[in-house]
């Protein structure tokens, strides 16, 4: 019986596409690509898409209803990781939001949270950067500061970039430039 129903459906589909000029334009491959953007709850292409911290995609109205259904047991419908309204990330595609009707009952999708980019990391300022307190004592005239001691409180400078990344290479390059500048400066002082 189930096989028969399936056959009936597939035989109806070509007619449907002929009536609808828009759908006949979309090739089948594109439809297959859409499947990876299916909401895990309604199994349709995700509208007002949000993504959980565990990486699962949902329509916001669907996920909202799921969270409302079980207020005291908020878990991801796919992997049962703990989730919450505050911790979902909205996905903004290009020009997708205008087609939808505003949903009255569903609260608006949580807004994306934007953190400011970190300041350039190669040279992080003169001692007071990044909330840390740096203090230096020096005895003697530069460059002969042999008795120099340095105190750093609450040192929160950014950690070094991982080896092999673009940032790491840039940092290495900059530190070499500063080293050569220092050597040239010392040489100039000695010669002058």
């Amino acid at each position: 019986m189930s096989g028969v129903t399936e056959n009936l459906k597939s035989s109806q589909e070509p007619n449907k596409e002929r009536q609808d000029p828009d759908s006949s334009d979309t090739p089948d491959e594109e439809k297959k690509d859409d499947r990876i953007f299916e909401c895990n709850i309604c199994l349709d292409t995700a509208k007002d898409a949000v993504v959980s911290m565990c990486g699962h995609l949902f329509c916001w109205p669907c996920l909202h209803q799921w969270l409302e259904t079980r207020p005291n047991r908020q878990v991801c419908p796919v992997c049962k990781a703990s989730i919450s309204k505050e911790k979902v990330v909205p996905l903004y595609g290009r020009g997708s939001s205008k087609q939808e009707d505003p949903r009255e009952k569903v609260p608006p999708r949580p807004a994306g949270q934007r953190t400011e980019p970190e300041p350039g990391s190669a040279f992080s300022g003169f001692g007071f950067a990044d909330n840390g307190f740096h203090m230096s004592f020096g005895i003697g005239a530069f460059p002969f500061g042999f008795f120099t001691s340095t105190f750093n409180f609450g040192d929160a400078r950014p950690t070094a970039a991982a080896r092999g990344t673009q940032q790491h290479m840039e940092e290495q390059f900059l530190s070499k430039i500063f080293l050569w500048m220092a050597i040239l400066f010392v040489a100039w002082l000695l010669l002058a």
Binding site: S2, G3, E6, C42, L43, D44, C62
Partner: peptide, 15 residues
């Protein structure tokens, strides 16, 4: 609507 829509899709998936 969502329930019927989903069962339809699931039905295809099962088959």
């Amino acid at each position: 609507n969502i329930a019927a829509q989903r069962i339809k899709r699931e039905f295809k998936e099962v088959i």
